[in-house]
Nucleic acid binder design. Structure first.
Lengths: 124, 124
DNA sequence: ATTATTGTATTAACCGGTTAATACAATAAT
DNA sequence: ATTATTGTATTAACCGGTTAATACAATAAT
């Protein structure tokens, strides 16, 4: 899974999202050790400072924690990860519905169209 | 409908989207005259240059056109607007599905959750 | 003991989007 | 004819995110 960063938004914010996603989806398991700042930065092709900034924010929110010279770990708090996952999902859904409605789609139409597309060639 | 611009992405890009939305949803009707650059800029609380930039881009794509000193108009091309609307909807859906899947939701789960939320207190 | 790797911090340069101020030609409105 | 409004253009300043280079203390690995 590539990091696919777009240039139309601050990179550090995108990094936060991507890491949250990886934690929620299990790519980075609960309690597991994260790659080092420098490794992650190289992986994502960004400056270590930028990655550091993203990680610091994630630390604020409690999703990861750092042991000074040992490395960084994903929280063991299952509840917290579940909450983050739910929050992310709700945000995605609300924003999506809002935009579709602005485009002039009704809720029924939205569901119909999603079924059609998600059944189709979407999967890659 | 306010312009609700966020600071985490280039404003001109957001302006383009918002104007596209307003055209697709009929707030700015086909062939109708748009407010002047200065008016629009004031409405959206941005610098006229920034609004001008967004409009210039929309002009490139053909969705609006300018008559030098007369003002700016929405295209009369129904087909074009329909296409834009479909493209915007598809983009929204694809991005949404992609993100939800990354979070670990299956297509069935997505539809279930959308039904639940869209039936609920979403509407404002 | 020495070395390599960890997170962390600092400073300066860079870069693109945004604002600000201003000007101009064309023309609709008066 | 004069005036106001239109889109358009230009230049400089500003600002926040990003990069770059570098350094440091702590400690795991050797």
């Amino acid at each position: 899974m590539p990091w696919d960063l777009k240039s139309d938004r601050p990179i550090y914010a995108q990094l936060i999202e991507q890491i949250e996603l990886k934690i929620c989806s299990g790519v980075y398991a609960l309690g597991s050790k994260l790659p080092s700042v420098r490794e992650l930065a190289q992986e994502a092709s960004v400056n270590p400072n930028t990655m550091q900034r993203a990680l610091a924010k994630l630390e604020e929110s409690g999703l990861v924690y750092a042991n000074r010279t040992e490395g960084r770990y994903v929280t063991e708090d299952v509840e917290m990860v579940r909450n983050v996952k739910n929050r992310l999902a709700e945000d995605l859904i609300e924003e999506f519905l809002q935009n579709m409605k602005r485009l002039g789609f009704s809720e029924d139409e939205i569901i119909t169209v999603i079924k059609k597309i998600s059944g189709g060639a979407m999967n890659e």
